[in-house]
Design a binder for these strands. Structure first.
Lengths: 197, 197, 197, 197
DNA sequence: AATGAATGAGTGTTCATTCAT
DNA sequence: TATGAATGAACACTCATTCAT
């Protein structure tokens, strides 16, 4: 983590505040993993051993907390991004790899896709920025594939990102379910229809 | 409506009870359309002019109420099914049409896809039956397409049904958004990748 | 009390509900007497041994609770009204007596004048009706005094009612203070100025 | 402002501290004017660009802040006092003018009369001194009028001061209301009753 | 069969005050 | 001296569910 000295806004935090903030994030990470993103914020505060006011000071909304949590995961996704870039044989494979990475990312917590989708249309959410960033990346990968001729021209990065969220959303159930022979990410790539030979 | 004399269980209701039940359904239909499926059940009861106990007696859970509501919509979907069966040129077109119909169906209320997905794994839900029925129908269409050679063999009806729910889930946002040139149902059919020529 | 079978709205309450409602009123009466009208409603509920939802059901706002409490005191004020009507030598004495009664009434709880004053301008408050009623009564007494020639013609009942509230508001301090030789109600009647002989 | 080098206690402040203090006062003046005296002190601190601790150091209680604010207004009231003294035809007119000035003064902020009244009985409040000072002045004007024979002898300056606060308190509502033909300050002077001719 | 009163844990949010930095 | 992070009790209000009537 590089958050050792800076919050999202870039302002330097006092040592004790940073410690608290980091601790809250750790607890929230665990809590949301176990209880999903709709869990009680008061419960998070209690588990972190701080008052609700402290939680509120650091993260004024549930979205802000989620955004900070995802920011912490950014690094993981970034590394995966590097791997994809360096090891993919072609743009199509890269795009597919990236979409898979995104699906994992959006599936980090139960119920996470919901606020992410909401952030795609609501300008105000702190999650919006995060989404926009990844949509851009998706667009980059998609454009490369389109130039390569391996992706349809009428699809937009935004569409694929939304499809990714939908896939993550669906996976919550699919995982509980027995594994399907064909994953939805695959379906998304080639569709259910066989190409007209 | 053919529910004129029977509840799901098939038990005959007293005339006044049936009237009550039907009225609740009408109100709930309107209410969920306006406020989404997460709206307050107390509000539904109040609008219907009955006590919450009465609502509870008829529909012990939110899922039960939704199931009854969807049962009422079954007829509409059934008619569309007939049209598809009679007017589709081939099995692939039929399958596609059916999936579109399902997407509309699952998008009847805001937030409906969520409990439907839950019902796919939870055995207990009264919605499970409904889902299973439509999964079977999807399987039938899919099998025909597979026999015809126009659908991949490794896809299951269950997968497509889940994909349909995900599509409905995503559409909520997509509609608010500017319309994408490529709809997700299409994406689902042929994928984003161009077939290797 | 005639509240034995009816709420403010006139609807008959179920026996248990009425018992609860009456008990809440008793507790609230005591609580507001001790802690003033700004005390916590949750605390009232707790003392009454009911959940906050129950309190809320009966009295959706603090004003509603206050109004019900004052309604219960209406009878007391009504009796005083009778006495004033029957025993006053003239209209001026009656008016003065009525104003004194009102001052006592508005001083029933610490902080009560504040919401009453607010109710004088806000149409929506359940207290507004109560105020309007007593303003009318004040107007009646005042008109009589004016016809009698013992009250200035340019004063309105509304003005006197407001002055009464202000007096009650001031009394909170005056009582704690040593008693003043001249009470504010008197001051209100004749002013601090000596008449130009 | 003559507070250029001293706090109430008379202690000399460091230049930066004084600047801070003065700035807080400016901001608080604006803030209380807009939001009333019950507004959040944290908000005041934030608007002033200082931490809540700093605000607290300068003004340990809300009353202390109010007292300092009123001290700053003292000058204005003092000038009005001069005018009254020099231009009033008689003691009665002077007293009346002074009371009017006081009503304006106590109405500077929404909700100000409340803490002022509290200060009249609570010895500890920093507002108490301010009040006592103005009560003395009122007593002086009143005594003059009493000597002149134009004021009742059984009224005390303290009573009039309290009546002034009550008038300010009432005025908040009266202004929102349509203007009454008879102002409460007048009522206070001559009462509602017509003098027995 | 129907009613609707009661429940009570739970929600997000606020803020005067303290105190470590 | 100043800062601002932390506190944590308190607030009004909601609602699925139960159960006495």
């Amino acid at each position: 983590m590089t958050s050792s000295s800076s919050a999202a806004g870039g302002r330097v935090l006092r040592a004790d505040a940073r410690r608290n903030r980091d601790h809250i994030l750790e607890v929230a990470q665990r809590f949301f993993t176990e209880h999903g993103v709709d869990g009680s914020l008061d419960a998070v505060a209690k588990q972190a051993g701080v008052g609700p006011g402290t939680l509120y000071r650091h993260f004024p909304t549930r979205e802000a907390l989620l955004a900070a949590l995802l920011e912490a995961r950014e690094e993981v996704l970034g590394q995966r991004l590097e791997t994809i870039r360096s090891e993919s044989a072609d743009a199509a494979e890269a795009l597919r790899g990236w979409l898979e990475a995104l699906v994992d990312w959006a599936g980090a917590f139960d119920g996470l896709p919901e606020p992410l989708r909401a952030a795609m249309t609501a300008e105000r959410s702190p999650l919006a920025l995060t989404c926009e960033g990844y949509i851009s990346t998706t667009d980059a990968f998609l454009s490369a594939a389109q130039r390569e001729g391996s992706a349809r021209g009428d699809v937009r990065g935004r569409d694929l990102f939304l499809a990714v969220l939908a896939t993550s959303w669906a996976r919550g159930a699919a995982l509980a379910d027995e594994q399907s022979p064909v994953a939805m990410v695959d379906l998304l790539a080639t569709g259910w229809a066989t190409p007209p030979s």
